[in-house]
Write a protein that binds this DNA or RNA. Sequence first.
DNA 1: ACAACCGATTTCTTTTTGCAACCGGTTTTT
DNA 2: AAAAACCGGTTGCAAAAAGAAATCGGTTGT
Lengths: 142, 142
Amino acid sequence: MEKKKVYKSYCPQYLGLDVFGDKWTLLIIRDMMIDGKRHFREFLQSEEKIASNILTNRLNMLEAEGIVTRHEDDSHKQKIIYSLTQKGIDLFPIIMAIAEWSVTYQPVDKEKADRAKQIIAGGAEAQKEVMRILRRQHLGKF
Amino acid sequence: MEKKKVYKSYCPQYLGLDVFGDKWTLLIIRDMMIDGKRHFREFLQSEEKIASNILTNRLNMLEAEGIVTRHEDDSHKQKIIYSLTQKGIDLFPIIMAIAEWSVTYQPVDKEKADRAKQIIAGGAEAQKEVMRILRRQHLGKF
DNA sequence: ACAACCGATTTCTTTTTGCAACCGGTTTTT
DNA sequence: AAAAACCGGTTGCAAAAAGAAATCGGTTGT
């Protein structure tokens, strides 16, 4: 029994935004990609102060969408490690495209802007390298 | 008297999502970029069926953000033409990054996917060409 | 004169978000 | 061994946003 979701349209942009077109989802992805966060409490501590019920909701959705996976932390029975899947890692170009626009038009923090600019300046190759590192960290591939 | 908005954070992703991190804003931008829509009634007719009050709200916000501009249509006093600014046109890479992800992971309409794939296949150069065309159409530059 | 069309606005209902307190269990500190 | 801190959540309620539908006054084409 597969769930064949019915969409309002089958336009690429709509189908993407249907998954991550809200204020919080991509910020969680950013936390994982840029800040290396992997635990519930780490996400809670981000500057934007996501509420714990919304965080729970989004993590469940992201897992259901196959964008993140949950694993038990061996060193701590209650800790859960969140990892990106390949589908999640492939959101990186979107994260970078947003960063590039904001660096130009928004009052971004200098330090954070510099980090983004560095990857932008490196072009497609630098971006691929970051994604390679994410694969190693989240999928355990070498 | 400038309005110096206070943000929850000055992270690039957050500052971008603060502007277009909702279900509708980028769909309006898509309508303009991909489907060449320029009038209120055209946006209303999109497949996703945005409500007119929300459309009004978003167009006002986009104008206030300097992403679109309003002009009177010479041939029809009541008609308003919405145009993208350079700041708006520079959202195109985000629109394309979303499309690329969706083409891989979502059940996109074949015809629409093909159009996206064509631009993706053309690389950075094809993307720049589309943006050049948008500039000509919306900014009147040659 | 009249119907169709223009960009909205108004009213109302439903859904989503935000906030704060709290939960049972686990680990660390004293 | 007891207390404190930390773990990923859950609950209940208020506020904000979105959705649906009817309507508006002015403009245009017939």
